[in-house]
Amino acid sequence: MPHDHHDHDHPHTLLPPDPALRVKALETLLERKGLLDPAALDEIIETYANKIGPQNGAAVVARAWADEDFHRALLTDATAAVSEMGFYGRQGEHMVAVENTDDTHNVVVCTLCSCYPWPLLGIPPGWYKSDAYRARVVREPRKVLAEFGLTLPEGKKVRVWDSTAEIRYLVVPQRPAGSEGLSQEDLAKLVTRESMIGTGLAKEQGA
């Protein structure tokens, strides 16, 4: 059987060791070869720093709480439902929404790398990409959740979704008590990034 040729030499060792200089070296090299437009980099950074982030997912969850038809559509075909709100794109081509209930709490991870629903949640936080989270949350989700300040009742099942393919998962947290009558805009303020990954719950009104 052939072996993987990647194993035998690693060109990256030719770059400067300092990471900031490494990035700069690659950027400059590609630009000088006519393959990279620095303005495009600025545009990509602007997109993920300011335009695409957890506020998108929060709008989806708030709408699902407030609108029964949308709720059903989201759980049936999340890709179609969120696309209709304008949230489709790279790293969100195949979405599945998983709903927390009184019986089950859902948590999302990517043990093999750092797969994450970019169009809904933006770029993943550092902890999501950490070795500790990737290694531990599948084996001891309750200890991991406790580190986030979340202790689940023993009677509630935990289901950890390991994103090993191109399916991206959005956790729909339970709607907090006392949120009746709030507008979708105010409901969205209760939906934290962590609550849509499953390492937190939605906030209580006024909390």
């Binding site: 900031a20 990035v23 950027e27 980099l41 990509i44 936080p125 550092g126 986030f148």
Partner: peptide, 24 residues
């Protein structure tokens, strides 16, 4: 060991070169 939780208001990109690395 423990999950390195930085808090809820951590910036999207911790440093400028992280952002450039993603974009490149």
């Amino acid at each position: 060991g423990p999950i390195p939780i930085a808090g809820t208001d951590e910036p999207v990109f911790e440093t400028e070169w992280h952002a450039r690395a993603l974009a490149v």
